[in-house]
Amino acid sequence: MKENDLPYRDAAAVMLLNGDNKVFVALRIDNAAEAWQMPQGGLEEGEDPEAGMLRELEEETGIRPDLVRVIARARRTLFYDLPEDLVGKVWKGKYRGQRQHWFLARFLGTDADVNLETAEPEFRGWRWAEPAELPRIIVPFKRRLYEDVLEEFADHL
């Protein structure tokens, strides 16, 4: 099966803002590069995207759902394609990329509420970033996606 024939994996993602309107970003544990990303992950069969986003956020960062207030949802579903060299390696080669439901949310907790030492750690570091710097600090194959996310939530930033 060619990569273009593969489906997209359904996923949810969050642009999490602190009180200074900075965005939570983290470094993946499986990538040695200085490539940051916002929390995101695959949806389970039949899972509501907002519930999936909150579940993924807690699984990846330790941030509990009661510390998050959803502000907005992207008007459209956003996509990204994996680079050719990753298609056969990621997600057991079943997907070409992700179809993501994006949410903008306010973090109501403190930095002490972030805990990357989760049951299955995905990140090795985190920080708060200016929204405008996101496309520059992300892995290159997600740059267009992050530009689209910024466009979707521009009225709130």
Rank of each mutant, 00 (worst) to 15 (best):
R76M: 07
R76F: 01
R76C: 06
T77H: 10
T77C: 09
T77M: 08
L78I: 10
L78W: 02
L78Y: 03
Y80H: 11
D81R: 13
D81F: 05
D81Q: 09
L82A: 05
L82N: 07
L82G: 01
P83T: 09
E84G: 15
E84R: 04
D85T: 15
L86W: 09
L86G: 05
L86K: 11
L86D: 14
L86C: 00
V87P: 08
V87F: 11
V87I: 01
V87L: 12
G88W: 05
K89Q: 14
K89C: 13
W91I: 03
W91A: 14
W91M: 13
W91K: 11
K92H: 10
K92W: 15
K92L: 07
G93F: 12
G93M: 08
G93A: 05
K94Y: 12
K94L: 09
K94G: 12
Y95K: 12
R96W: 06
R96L: 09
R96T: 11
G97E: 03
R99Q: 14
Q100E: 14
Q100M: 14
Q100S: 12
H101L: 00
W102Q: 08
W102T: 03
W102H: 05
L104H: 00
A105P: 13
R106P: 06
F107E: 08
L108F: 08
G109S: 04
G109T: 14
G109L: 08
G109C: 15
T110F: 15
T110L: 09
D111S: 06
A112G: 06
A112C: 14
A112F: 06
A112Q: 05
D113P: 12
D113Q: 12
D113Y: 14
D113C: 05
V114E: 03
N115K: 08
L116W: 00
E117S: 05
E117V: 00
T118V: 04
T118K: 04
A119W: 01
A119L: 15
E120F: 01
E120A: 04
E120T: 02
P121H: 02
E122C: 09
F123R: 00
F123A: 00
F123V: 00
W126F: 08
W126G: 01
W126C: 00
W126N: 00
R127K: 10
R127C: 02
W128I: 02
W128E: 10
W128C: 02
W128G: 05
W128K: 05
W128N: 03
A129F: 02
E130K: 05
E130T: 03
P131K: 07
A132F: 07
A132S: 11
A132Y: 08
A132N: 15
E133F: 08
E133W: 09
L134C: 13
L134M: 08
